[in-house]
Computed example of a mutant assay.
Amino acid sequence: MTEYTLADDLALALQLADTADTISLDRFRALDLVVETKPDRTPVTDADKAVERAIRANLERARPDDVVLGEEYGGEGAAAHAHRQWIIDPIDGTANFLRGVPVWGTLISLVVDGVPVVGVASSPALTKRWWASTGAGAWMLDQTAPTTDHAARRLEVSKVADLGGASVSYNSFQGWDDAGHLDALTRLNRTVWRTRAYGEMWAYMLLAEGLVDVVGEFDLKAYDVAALIPIVREAGGAFTSLSGGDPLWAGDALATNGLLHDATVGLLAL
């Protein structure tokens, strides 16, 4: 089996994101967009499927020995126990995408022995891309910046050390309600400075940029969080389940600037 460096894998992930952006942006706000309802009652568009097919085809050529897990076409074998596994969410925020809301993006991650080590979150409608690999920091490219400043910027989480001064994104009221944890959300809301539901991968990227201090949500799959974990961690933050455990397969997530993590887990006491 060929050995690859993390730099090799990150470069491939960024190339995959380029391909995804071209496909998804072409279908964004398209009048002939095809929308279906999956068995779990969530929507899927022709763009979701096309992006995942293209990424899978490229991975089959570039990394034929690796396992792939994607939202639309599933996984191969014992996905959670694979040595090298690419985890793909072709369009995170499909509901936004089909309504024409620009907060959505493609999530691409490489997980090695159960640990996400490469993550790319690309949001072409916001003209932003975030990425990280273990030990190499977290980065963002903002194409809306002045033309003289189209350079990647290293990301760093905030230094807010008191929950009373924290800005929190809880993703959705409904998600906390469905999970039976509205009391915990109410405690959090009454303790912190500010709460907003930014939603989707964007909330976590705002955290990595130092603009939000805590993000928590329920009803998640591995493809929702795998790419986000290394970006938040490499920006200096903490990323666990809401109870403080491993977040990849937990079904929920808590990301913070690190300084607030233990206090937030304790306050939620799920």
Rank of each mutant, 00 (worst) to 15 (best):
D177G: 00
E200A: 15
L188T: 03
H181P: 10
S169V: 02
D177Q: 09
D183N: 02
A203F: 07
D178Q: 11
R190E: 13
Q174I: 06
G210A: 08
D177W: 07
N189Y: 06
R194H: 14
D213E: 11
D183H: 04
A203S: 15
H181I: 08
D183G: 01
V212W: 03
D213N: 13
A179Q: 13
A184K: 13
R194D: 15
G216K: 01
D183E: 12
V215K: 00
M201G: 07
T191Y: 01
T186E: 14
L211S: 15
F173Q: 10
Q174G: 08
Y204H: 13
S169L: 12
S169Q: 10
G199E: 02
R187F: 00
L185I: 03
T186M: 09
R187C: 02
G210Q: 11
N171C: 03
W202G: 00
N189I: 00
L211D: 11
A208R: 14
V214S: 08
L182T: 02
L211I: 14
A197R: 04
G199M: 08
E217N: 12
T186Y: 03
R190H: 09
Q174S: 13
W176C: 10
D183M: 00
Y204E: 04
N171I: 12
A184T: 09
F173V: 06
V215Y: 02
G210V: 05
R187M: 03
V214M: 10
L185F: 03
Y204K: 01
G175S: 15
L207R: 10
G180R: 05
W193S: 14
R190I: 00
L211N: 15
L185Y: 02
D178R: 03
V168S: 12
E200S: 14
L185R: 11
T186F: 00
G210C: 13
Q174E: 08
A179I: 11
H181F: 13
S172N: 12
S169W: 09
Y198V: 10
V168Q: 13
A208V: 03
R187Y: 00
W176M: 07
G175A: 02
L188I: 08
D213F: 13
E217F: 14
G210T: 10
T186A: 11
Q174L: 09
S172V: 07
W193G: 04
E209L: 04
G210H: 14
G216P: 12
R196E: 15
A179C: 14
D177L: 12
A203I: 05
D178H: 06
V214D: 14
D213C: 07
L206W: 08
V168A: 13
M205W: 04
T195V: 09
R196H: 03
D213P: 08
Y170Q: 03
G175P: 02
L188S: 07
T191E: 09
M201F: 09
L211W: 04
M201S: 15
V215W: 04
Y204M: 11
V212E: 11
L206P: 02
A179E: 13
V215T: 05
N171G: 08
L211H: 15
Y170D: 01
G210N: 14
G216Q: 01
F173P: 05
W202F: 15
N171S: 05
G210M: 10
M205T: 09
R196F: 05
T191V: 05
V192G: 00
Y198K: 01
W202D: 01
D178T: 12
Y204A: 05
N189C: 02
G199K: 02
L206S: 04
N189T: 09
A203P: 10
T195R: 06
E217D: 14
V192T: 12
